[in-house]
Amino acid sequence: MNLSIEVQERSALRPNSRDGLGARANFIDAIKFLYRCAVADHLIPQGNNPTRELRRPAKQKSTRRPLTTAQLSEINEVAATTGIDPALTALIIRLHIETACRRGGSKALRPCDLDTKQLTVGLREKGNTVRDQPVSPSLMDALLAHERYRAPDHDRTAQLLRHRNGRPIPITYYDQIWKRIGRILPWVSTLGVTSHWLRYTTLTWVERNFGYAVAAAYAGHVQTSGRTGNTLTYVSATIEEVAAALVALTGEPYPLAAIGPQ
């Protein structure tokens, strides 16, 4: 317990930090897992596991909230007009706003995941989830142009998003984006805005305008064993309904969009 408190006290301070509670919780999860493995491998008896009574600190309410239209406009303006590669930054920001994907999903995107007939991108995200996410015609054109100019001769199963020299972007590129935007827009740094805030913003808008089931499908959330998950087994949204939300969000036509109740 004393060591977990020390980890909390020595954790890095960030604008959106919660007094080190996250670092402490992660440490407790890691040390409990370590001792569970030791018990499973018969290195120590269960009765000698010192982490049995160790509990994570109470989870704090997230400070994340939907961004306003004005804030999104500022972010898009800075992304598209500053830095050494504004075209790439603007494309990434737009991809996250339009699809509500996680950064792992956008980084894992491959040219073969672009379905130009159905206007969908195949997103592979955490939990080994895979889904076809509708995108607007103009975003699909932008993704195809990115591939054409930056990786014309690469394997279509390789990473799509790349620097001008053809090198695939690392996961740290996303952190660099927000650090740079935060230097120009101080409120971004103060709030600790990241790519996940864009996902939060889009999904909140979809839920308010199209309901929980469509928002859950838009997010790519998997069904759980709880009551809410059981209900979604019967009322889960179709890809056509997700596409209808996309049309309302982007103002662009889409071939799969549902006009009304089917």
Rank of each mutant, 00 (worst) to 15 (best):
Y35V: 04
Y254E: 03
D29L: 09
T190E: 15
G220H: 07
A30C: 09
I171M: 01
S11P: 07
A100N: 10
D41E: 04
V247D: 00
P15M: 08
G104H: 12
S62L: 09
R52N: 03
L160P: 04
A79H: 04
T68I: 05
P137E: 06
G182Y: 08
R14T: 15
D115K: 13
I84G: 05
A158V: 04
T228K: 13
S62P: 01
R18F: 02
D113N: 13
A258Y: 12
A142K: 04
T201K: 12
E6P: 00
H146N: 12
P253Q: 09
A245L: 08
K61S: 07
G22S: 10
I171R: 01
V242G: 10
T129I: 14
G22Q: 03
V222S: 14
L72D: 00
A248Y: 02
R131H: 05
P57Y: 12
R10N: 09
S11H: 04
K179H: 11
L203H: 04
R10P: 00
S106E: 14
R150Y: 14
T81E: 11
P57E: 09
F27Y: 15
A216M: 06
Q223W: 02
A158L: 02
D153S: 09
K59T: 06
G182L: 12
R65Q: 10
I28A: 08
E74V: 02
H163E: 10
R148P: 00
D29W: 02
N16T: 04
N209Q: 08
S4Q: 07
Y234L: 15
L13F: 00
R94D: 14
I181T: 13
D155Y: 10
R148E: 02
A216H: 03
Y218R: 06
H221D: 12
H221P: 00
I259T: 09
R64L: 02
Q60E: 07
V188P: 14
R148V: 00
S189L: 08
C37A: 14
T68H: 05
A142R: 09
W187Q: 09
I75S: 02
A248N: 03
H154S: 06
Y200P: 01
T204C: 09
G229C: 08
L203T: 11
V247F: 03
L43H: 07
E77Q: 05
R183E: 14
L139E: 03
A237K: 12
G122E: 11
L160C: 05
Y173N: 14
A79K: 02
A142M: 05
Y35G: 03
L185M: 04
D41S: 01
N48S: 13
S73M: 02
T233R: 10
M140I: 13
L54Q: 04
A38K: 07
S236D: 06
A38Q: 05
E207V: 00
Q8P: 02
E125P: 01
L91V: 11
Q71Y: 00
A58S: 11
V121D: 02
D85E: 11
Q60N: 06
R183C: 01
L185I: 05
L144F: 03
Y173P: 10
M1R: 10
P152H: 14
A38P: 01
L139M: 05
C37V: 15
K126Q: 15
Q71K: 01
L246S: 06
D113M: 04
I84Y: 13
Y218A: 13
E53C: 03
E77T: 01
L72C: 07
I184Q: 14
A248V: 04
